[in-house]
Design a protein around this nucleic acid. Structure first.
Lengths: 251, 251
DNA sequence: CGGCCGCTTGAATACCGTCAATTATAGTGG
DNA sequence: CCACTATAATTGACGGTATTCAAGCGGCCG
């Protein structure tokens, strides 16, 4: 159940089988299914438990008084939505399902117990938080400095690397692809662009063979080229096993 | 020395005198002075210790390959730059001084000891991280959805509330003010606008009496009005003592 | 097969960026 | 104390990127 989370954390350090079992047990407790367009949790709610995305896509978003909406991050399998947020009276942003989503509802205490009794897991979860913060800063940078085509390219790069880390990409004859069940409207809300401009920029990207997007599958024919357009530097995702000295010593 | 940090944390929960002494002792260890335009820490560096801003203004920023720069957050007295970042091989963004800055260099272990031996401080520092993340999301929202005048207004609101929390604002006859030693160039880098447009938007804001900016002092004649233009909702800063049930029981 | 949702297109326009030059302010040294 | 210099703020003109509005197309699902 917690396979994706485990895979992700192992980008930082190799977990022990005990670590993994603990996570599996915690995640197996209670599973909720959220339908597309429904919220997993809504701004103003009192946080109750930790939500772990088992399957499907969701997003974090904020809504302004006048209805303008900004998606501030995508949530994919393995993402933990709101660890430690239970200390707040109310949550400050919403999380909504983009596809049918299976969410593990883990009592905060349970998860903290699991994490805090293993120094390795403690560090791995710190790492996870640090990466999330870095992603958020990168979004700010994209929205502030990158123009349309760079911004979209950067987002596709981010998602490719994140999905690769949890094993949700394919790699056929050098062309990398992944499921991308997001509409152009949602892409517009995420990049701070109008839908029309997203559409036109995507056409440009297809012409330049930066991406192929058919149905719900995105293919990247030439990752180097896409990264170059995006000025993408993967360092901020910290996928190079920064915590290898903590690796569990198992066969 | 750690006065501002203590004041900030007490927006979440009342600390005990022991908590405060521990923080004071940790922050007194080693103090470094960084001059304007110098970096406190640079992207790619190996994080060595935790940096606490004692005095002065700094910012977090990212630089793209072609030199474009985005400021992704302001750092003011009481802000902790990089707690827990020492587990990473290299840091993913830079922090630069905007004014002369006094920084307390706290060994990571020292700070973790202090924090982890007091459940109250543990929670208070969680809260601090959650607020920083929320601020980052709000910047993304501003850059994505708010137009120029709203964006600048929102930033002034954020800074007013943050500075008020650490006691760095004045309140003369209903007009709120604070030191704001930031140039229009830097403001442009922070809001993702050109300097020219920042300048013109500020003129507009002065005409509408949303702000008065003389020398290095910003005055807000009518906070309600500014908040309204910015569509500012202070909830995300969580300044309403969410952790009051942890309050230390002291006179 | 009809309807809805998402994608696409065109035209007009607004917002904001760039370039380049000028004015103001502050810090420095004679 | 004042000239000198660097930095910061301001202005005008122009162009480009992106938004808005509105309409048409197309595929998927009941």
């Amino acid at each position: 159940m917690a396979t994706y989370l485990i895979r992700k954390l192992e980008q930082f350090t190799q977990l022990s089988s005990e670590d993994k079992q603990k996570l599996e047990r915690a995640a197996a407790a209670k599973v909720r299914v959220v339908r597309p367009r429904e919220d997993i949790i809504r701004e103003g709610d009192k946080p109750r438990q930790v939500n772990l995305i088992l399957d499907g896509w969701a997003c974090r978003y904020k809504v302004l008084e006048d209805g303008r909406r900004q998606i501030v991050g995508f949530l994919v399998p393995g993402d933990v939505c709101d660890i430690r947020m239970f200390i707040l009276k109310q949550i400050d942003h919403s999380m909504g399902a983009l596809t049918p989503v299976r969410v593990a509802e883990i009592p905060s205490d349970t998860l903290l117990d699991v994490i805090d009794t293993s120094p390795r897991l403690t560090r791995a979860m710190w790492w996870n938080s640090l990466v999330e913060e870095a992603i958020s800063r990168e979004w700010t940078t994209s929205l502030g400095q990158r123009e349309a085509i760079e911004r979209l390219s950067h987002l596709f790069c981010e998602l490719y690397f994140r999905l690769k880390a949890v094993g949700l990409t394919e790699n056929g004859q050098g062309r990398k692809s992944f499921e991308f069940p997001v509409t152009q409207d949602q892409l517009a809300d995420a990049t701070g662009m109008s839908t029309v401009h997203v559409n036109r920029t995507l056409q440009l990207m297809r012409e330049q063979e930066l991406i192929i997007w058919k149905g719900k599958t995105v293919t990247i024919p030439d990752l180097e080229a896409l990264m170059s357009v995006a000025m993408f530097n993967a360092n901020y995702l910290h996928l190079d096993r920064d915590g290898h000295e903590l690796d569990a010593n198992e066969p």
